[in-house]
């Protein structure tokens, strides 16, 4: 399957063995993938924006999910980088570390059309079947295909 550059997520934005030493390591690894894909222009700026959101309130959610996210001037297109951790990364959820990490990057002045794809993604995150599929996946290309199919982008 071809991977259009404008797609929400591509295979190179999937890390099925996410560095899990701590939150910063995990976030840094995913952010670098976004930068390599040309979706983030200024890595330092982007990481600062992600951290600022994290400080407002931790983005860890019950059920082993972390969703570091921000709107940032350093982002060129709505993007998702996905990481899976066997050991888990602490994102401040009350029930323990996150095994699925979704880094959601939104451009600062993104118009609503571009944002609907992120909204559709967020809605999938609370579905058990969606999480189960990602927990069981073995291939980065398959993960990207699956997520794009689910959110219709």
């Amino acid at each position: 399957m071809t991977e259009p550059q404008s797609a929400l997520i591509t295979a190179d934005l999937v890390d099925l063995d996410l560095p899990s030493a701590n939150r910063r390591a995990a976030v840094g690894a995913l952010a670098e993938r976004l930068q390599k894909a040309g979706r983030v222009t200024d890595l330092t700026q982007f990481l600062a924006d992600i951290e600022a959101r994290e400080q407002q309130m931790p983005t860890g959610l019950e059920g082993g999910i972390g969703i570091p996210h921000c709107r940032s001037a350093a982002v060129t297109a709505p993007s998702l980088a996905f990481g899976r951790s066997t050991a888990g990364v602490d994102f401040g959820a009350e029930d323990g570390p996150a095994r699925l990490v979704f880094m959601i990057a939104a451009p600062e002045g993104g118009d609503t059309d571009h944002m609907t794809v992120l909204a559709a993604l967020a809605r999938r995150l609370v579905r058990k079947a969606f999480k189960d599929e990602l927990l069981g996946a073995t291939d980065a290309g398959h993960v990207a295909d699956y997520i794009r199919k689910e959110v219709g982008a």
């Binding site: 407002q56 983005t59 959610l61 709107r71 967020a122 809605r123 995150l125 609370v126 579905r127």
Partner: peptide
Amino acid sequence: CPTGIAHTYMAAEALEV
């Protein structure tokens, strides 16, 4: 939610379900 890109929609989905 503050950023308006994630929690807003996750909460909506969870409430609908």
